[in-house]
Computed example of a mutant assay.
Amino acid sequence: MFETRSRASRIVLQVLVTLMVLPFLFPLIVMVQGSLAGQGWENYRTVLSQPELPLFFRNSVIIALITIALVLAATMLAAFAFSKLWLRGREVFFWLLLAALTLPEVILLTPMFSISLQLGLYDTYLSVILPLAALQIPFTVLLARTFMNGIPDGLFEAARIDGATTWQSFLHVILPLTRPIAAAIVVLTLITTWNDYLLPLVFLQSPETQTITMLPQFFVGQFSNDQTKVLAAAVITALPEIIAYLCLQKLFERGLAAGALK
């Protein structure tokens, strides 16, 4: 950890950090203030009284949990293989996976839509879960592999000498040491999945499958545009991921710091 010994350097560092935080903090303050404008807390009561809210919340939870499970399982297995197993063409496959990071979600929208129709997945949870997981995996594999590279190979080799199989070594030696990066992956995937607006808008058409990001649309129509309730809905939508981050904050920060360094 870096330390600043002089008072002047601490003041400069504090001012610098404050200036860096302000561009991200200011929109949040404006959002909360706007949600309390007009009718005040009545805006929140109106949003919470929407009959579709529990259904949308349930759908978002289901999609987020399944996506996190898929991303976490695929990421840990792939990162373990890329980091600890000797495979022919390992680096080639790894860089091909990283090449997927250059493909934005909008460009892939048309082929994903066509595939979902052909497979009969349109307007189902899987039509959103599978693309979201696939778009997250390249980056999370990069983080997890870098983290696993910091785990001594001697631990893995010692387990193999003691008679453990590759699968047992992964489960009982490598996996318990990856909790920080796993927490970081969970938080990052949750934020991306919970906030995603484009894929649910395109692939989920029936109210029974739509997510909580569709909630603000109830207050914007052809003859109405109640921005105070839109902002209140945005605040309510953001609360679950904020709570999840606060619960996993320490592991999340440790995972990102370790995953960024080799």
Rank of each mutant, 00 (worst) to 15 (best):
R5C: 05
R58M: 14
I161F: 05
R7F: 01
L77W: 04
L77Q: 11
P138E: 00
F2E: 07
T211W: 05
G163V: 04
P216V: 04
I242R: 10
L135R: 02
Y44K: 03
I185K: 04
L171D: 09
I29H: 10
T18Y: 06
F94A: 08
I151D: 00
T213D: 11
D153P: 00
K84I: 06
G89R: 09
Q33T: 15
S9I: 00
D196I: 15
I181N: 01
L53F: 10
I68Q: 00
R88E: 14
P180R: 03
W41Y: 10
N149K: 12
W41M: 14
F80S: 06
D162I: 00
F113M: 08
A74Y: 07
I151W: 02
E91F: 04
Q217D: 14
L19A: 08
F56E: 01
L256P: 01
L239K: 11
M20S: 09
L55D: 07
T166C: 09
L65C: 09
L171C: 07
Q217Y: 13
P207E: 09
P54W: 07
A8N: 02
T237L: 05
F93I: 10
Y197R: 13
I68H: 03
I174M: 04
T67Q: 06
V92Q: 11
V17H: 03
M31K: 08
F203Y: 11
P207M: 08
W194F: 13
V128A: 08
L142H: 05
L201I: 03
R45F: 12
A159E: 01
V30D: 15
T102N: 14
L188V: 05
E42G: 07
E208C: 11
A99H: 03
E3H: 15
A133W: 05
T146N: 15
E241M: 12
N195I: 13
V30S: 14
F156W: 10
V61E: 02
I63R: 03
R88V: 15
I107V: 13
A100Y: 13
L171G: 05
L108K: 10
L231F: 11
I236S: 01
L87K: 12
A100F: 14
I236A: 09
T67A: 09
T67H: 01
R58L: 14
N195H: 08
L103R: 03
A184L: 02
S114Q: 11
F139T: 06
Q222A: 14
G259N: 04
P54A: 06
M112K: 10
L188G: 04
F56S: 04
L239F: 02
T178Q: 01
I63F: 06
Y122N: 14
Q249M: 12
W194R: 06
A79Y: 02
N59L: 06
P131V: 04
L103F: 14
L119I: 07
F56C: 06
R254A: 13
L85C: 11
K262M: 12
I174V: 12
I212A: 04
E91V: 04
L256D: 00
L130D: 12
F80T: 00
G150S: 09
